[in-house]
Design a protein around this nucleic acid. Structure first.
Lengths: 346, 346
DNA sequence: GCACGCTGCGAGAGCGCTCTCGCGGCCGGG
DNA sequence: CCCGGCCGCGAGAGCGCTCTCGCAGCGTGC
């Protein structure tokens, strides 16, 4: 291992190019005010020496870090059981690197971690935060807001009603649910059941609302709460079949629960989609394709969601540097469209 | 949004406690040489002011960042299609935060990204790197080694044969494959086929080797190459059934391919496990549980793998700070055990 | 031809921290 | 009782960068 040569400093580059530190800095940071022959000499010196700016030194004076934290509240085993997390991260990563920002990942597990995260954010290591926190009683959002960092949430937070301009990106859960149910109606189904997700998450609530929008006053016996897991879907389906053996369709709050429902239906000798049509939500691959039959489901562009979150945040960060165009501008919540994907289950 | 009060500096704390900066620094960093009454006064001042050290300033002088990069070579859609990635990250994250290190995530997509990553690592933002790069022609590992940063690889790299002491953590792919095949033999199966993963990845090669260890000179017609996707598993299974309709078992290189194989078997009217027993690899949830029938498979503790990678790296980082116990010590490659999980497919 | 402005560059301070060095006070030994 | 050693603390330099300021040097207008 080559004894790491001491990295060249601005000073060194300046000496080599025969100019002052200030001039090198100007060239490196692309600000104008350096005439061409000189600028070229500096550029040559830079890559002859393999100069790379020391970010720590730079941050020290600019108070910028070109880094944002991605905070995932992890009791959400949901986040970890499915591939969404990775896709979302990829979208975020793409957008961030396109703007030369780094991604610092913070996974929180329990209360201790919250203190740690709060400390970290207060420590001023990052310029902003992207936060995934789905449960209603999560203290994290509060902590983060207190840190005063620009923040964008993934998924509509519970208190988003207020006029306090909290930024978030969400998928059109309600609209997607409506599409799903309308599709079932279009197939001639009339006794349509719904298996909800965990109702302490806005996505589950919104999907239920969408279901109600279309079904207008549905039989309560046709709605059963699950928690987004396959096991809960199976259980809920059995429940529903017990209460309303005549049901002819079911809209599950996500694909995992739809897969569970499929098993319960099979167990009860119902054919899908002939006897009972099934629609899921998420288009979670490879699950949605691997079920028997493959799931008709509502697809959301999860990567785009990540990208958008990052974009929103970066815009805020820019603004806080730029003149004094503070606050106000721009949407506080963005809702992404969904599309119904038809396979064989409905 | 409260106009962020200028964060208190060491200086401020020193003033409040009526001591010098140096003393505060000593207390904050837990070095001894400060007597009790004074130390206590400093501690009080610290949390009265809510002082948090400025990491940039600290890094500037210590040349430490308490941050490590996690680099994921992403043409690996495999990494993104399955939940491993998240689990691994979680393991890494746990270990890192336990040692007060941050996790900087770098996802690379194409050649451009490589340059970016190389620049980033050279820029000295992180103290070390954890690298996931599975394909044989990936230029990333070379770039990273050139940056001279302590590095640990996830999965055995291709060139690990050399004595150059490259550190890695891998699962016991070969041993796991042997277990799987022996299990099938134990069930009385004799015409056992194998669907391999993409053979430019060491995990696939090692699993194939394990298969061969037990089968000693298997009929080449009983081995078919896949690429770790469900579609490839399905295709390979059809191929195998065409060549050897009498086969009575199949060991798939991962669960996704096993799921594909299951579909092909069903399509050909074979009952599982009665006619053909199937074993997968990974215990990838929820897939492995959701197939029909649920998969018997080889489980690896993926989170532990992440944790171990981080631990290995941190050890190296410590050493490079500590006296001059350089190089040499400690294992270069660690292989984690696997366990066979019996469900209904074999 | 002189004053004035503007533009290109250098000098220097300072960001918040760590760490070496040196000094004063206290103790023990002669 | 005096001196040497050690321990606890403060002074100050310096990490590598950015950015303000001021000073030349040039061009322009009267």
């Amino acid at each position: 291992m080559s004894e790491s040569a001491p990295r060249p400093t601005l000073e060194a580059v300046a000496a080599r190019a025969g100019v002052s530190r200030a001039t090198v800095s100007r060239v490196v940071n692309g600000s104008d005010g350096v005439r061409e022959p000189l600028a070229e000499r500096v550029r040559r010196a830079v890559d002859e020496l393999g100069y790379v700016p020391n970010q720590a030194a730079r941050s020290l004076v600019t108070r910028r870090h070109d880094a944002v934290a991605v905070i995932v509240a992890e009791p959400e085993t949901r986040v970890f059981a499915d591939p969404f997390f990775a896709r979302q991260l990829r979208g975020i990563s793409k957008e961030l690197t396109a703007h030369d920002n780094q991604l610092v990942l913070l996974l929180t597990e329990d209360r201790d971690d919250h203190a740690r995260v709060a400390r970290y954010l207060a420590g001023g290591h990052v310029d902003g935060a992207l936060v995934f926190s789905l449960h209603i009683d999560d203290p994290l959002p509060g902590l983060i807001r207190r840190a005063g960092l620009p923040t964008v949430f993934g998924g509509r937070p519970h208190w988003s009603g207020g006029e306090d301009g909290v930024r978030y990106v969400d998928t059109d859960n309600r609209g997607g649910a409506r599409d799903a149910v309308r599709h079932l109606l279009g197939l001639g189904r009339r006794r349509i059941a719904h298996i909800t997700g965990a109702l302490d998450q806005t996505s589950a609530v919104d999907r239920l609302d969408g279901f109600r929008d279309v079904m207008a006053d549905p039989d309560p016996a046709l709605v059963e709460e699950g928690d987004f897991t396959a096991a809960s879907g199976e259980r809920a389906m059995r429940e529903l079949l017990g209460r309303r053996p005549d049901l002819d369709a079911v809209f599950a709050g996500n694909d995992l629960m739809a897969a569970g429902a499929l098993r319960a239906l099979r167990e009860h000798g119902r054919r899908v989609p002939d006897d009972v049509a099934v629609v899921g939500f998420d288009d979670m691959l490879p699950i949605a394709e691997q079920t028997e039959p493959p799931l008709t489901t509502v697809r959301q562009d999860i990567e785009e969601m990540g990208r958008l979150m990052a974009r929103l945040l970066l815009r805020d960060l820019d603004r806080s540097t730029a003149p004094d165009e503070r606050e106000g501008a721009g949407p506080t919540g963005v809702v992404l469209p969904v599309t119904l994907v038809r396979r064989n289950s409905a």
